[in-house]
Nucleic acid binder design. Structure first.
Lengths: 136, 136
DNA sequence: TCATACTGTAACTATTTTTATTACAGAACA
DNA sequence: TGTTCTGTAATAAAAATAGTTACAGTATGA
């Protein structure tokens, strides 16, 4: 993965867990992360798409967890959040006239998939509840 | 990790393995990768720093593997090549006045380190020889 | 019912990161 | 001694990421 999507998403989920069902608005969350509220809302939209959070519009609105934190594992969060292949979604197009260039994209993809599976497996051994417990 | 350092380095190493000791110059390698020769030379400089390749300057110069491909494992290549933490080296500084913001960087780092260890372990199960054999 | 305070989303700008280009000194070769 | 490389720096271009502004739509409550 890349950039800070995972960090931001996990930060959001941790905050939501800590306040146990209370609604938090994007400005508050952005204040904790120290980033832009719109970025938080975009990240929340994605977390919502994958069923991790619920949001309430309008005055007094905000977001809350849509699941029990013990049922949210970090591997699933990673998968929901990831947008590119792990080790560099090269839009690079190797030379098709070279025997190595011609095949390497496929071989790299296979290698990355395997490595990423190992990564996700490691993340999956922890739930949001576990992670969040470290803050108490 | 990120960007295409690993992809490029592995592409280089694979090419060098395929030609079995022949010297390849940066322009030829760049032609296979379809990128800039200077980028290849920088990547080679790094691979040299970690003892994977040898280079010869001057006319007729180029690079070759400095080790037996069976002794180069992909986890080591990954470690040599990686420059940032895996899941987003956020230069972001969360709010120190928030209980979550204050501690999350450390918790994320620990989590990433563990996940990355799993990733490297997966990559380490393969050598350059194994990888390169897929092209024959 | 109307002012207020949110979400959701788009459009745009700014910043940062990545990649490419140009340039050139120094090395090896013929 | 001209040619062809590496190594490296400086710069420019391109791409990715994050921030900003703006606003329609929704809920709340006075």
């Amino acid at each position: 993965m890349n950039s800070s999507h995972f960090s931001i998403s996990l930060h959001i989920l941790t905050l939501l867990d800590q306040v146990k069902g209370q609604l938090l608005n994007s400005e508050y969350i952005a204040g904790s992360i120290n980033c832009n509220p719109v970025l938080v809302r975009k990240e929340l939209a994605n977390l919502h798409k994958y069923g991790f959070v619920q949001s309430k519009e309008g005055k007094g609105g905000g977001s809350t967890l849509a699941k029990n934190p013990a049922d949210i594992n970090l591997g699933d969060v990673y998968r929901a959040v990831k947008q590119k292949s792990l080790l560099g979604e090269s839009k690079n197009e190797p030379n098709p006239d070279c025997p190595v260039g011609k095949q390497i994209t496929k071989h790299l993809t296979d290698l990355y998939d395997e490595a990423e599976t190992a990564l996700v497996k490691s993340l999956s051994s922890k739930t949001l509840k576990d992670f969040s417990a470290g803050f108490k």
